[in-house]
Design a protein around this nucleic acid. Structure first.
Lengths: 146, 146
DNA sequence: CTACATGCAAATCCTTTGCATCCAC
DNA sequence: GTGGATGCAAAGGATTTGCATGTAG
């Protein structure tokens, strides 16, 4: 069990949350995959370990974790909605509208935006895992050639 | 019919697009509401005018407009997926995770991010209508009081 | 013991697909 | 006239709900 995973469980214990087997399993599944996963992927990962959780259970748990600020939810366009533990290695994505390619984006790039939102709007942003859509270089060149 | 609306239709005509009644109606519905709307809201707006378009038609048209870069698509969390014409007044949203309040955000705030993405990743971002989740001031104060 | 989480089944909602028909060009 | 768009019906998939049962604290 990773550091992040232990830290999350410890944080929940301190909040007095009820720590069921299912909740632990979902948290572990989220730790096992540092990148984002859909609810279906979480179920698949657990199935590979020999456990089965129903859809409603997984949905309820990820939504609970999201409400507690421990998990981020991202809509990756046609790739669907994915969840991810908010660990130390926050990152974001560039999604190409033409070819669907997904490029990782460093978190530091969001610092200026965070600061502006805080200062100008008195709003505490949680930019944990954002998807920015647009065109990658290859697709720009291809469309320019047409 | 608004300026934006005429401009969009003119742009389509120049591209040689087939301008059906349904496409005109959807474009008008998008013009009538400067803010974002769901597919269902577009249908409702048209129904109020005495017209009826089927779901598949509306979906196909907004996706077509999106592929042409004339419409932005945004996932507002539990509020679902919404569409909006990309006119002159681009803006974004702050969505409070606790109370669901939606606050408008000026587009200028994205300029620095756009520039970084272009420069550092050679990616042309289309940040037309973005949702940033977080906590508004009221909810921060409320949770601090607990 | 008791409140709350889970499993199961079913419902709901959003979105897409196949195919015959229609219409803008 | 013809290719592409629409309407209709139906399928598909993701997500939610109600309720009986199970279980963590």
């Amino acid at each position: 069990m990773s550091d992040t995973c232990e830290r999350v469980i410890e944080a929940l214990r301190q909040r007095g949350a009820r720590l069921t087997i299912q909740r632990r399993l979902v948290i572990e599944a989220l730790c096992d995959e540092p990148d984002h996963q859909s609810v279906q992927a979480i179920q698949e990962r657990l199935r590979a370990k020999g456990t089965h959780l129903t859809e409603p259970t997984v949905y309820r748990i990820v939504q609970w974790l999201k409400a507690l600020g421990l998990v981020s939810q991202t809509d990756l366009g046609q790739s669907g909605i994915v969840y991810q533990l908010i660990g130390d290695r926050r990152h974001h994505h560039l999604v190409c509208l033409a070819c669907g390619r997904v490029i990782d984006l460093d978190d530091g790039i969001m610092d200026a935006l965070r600061e502006s939102v805080r200062r100008d709007y008195d709003f505490e942003p949680r930019i944990d895992h954002m998807a920015i859509f647009g065109l990658c270089r290859d697709c720009r060149e291809r469309s320019a050639g047409e």
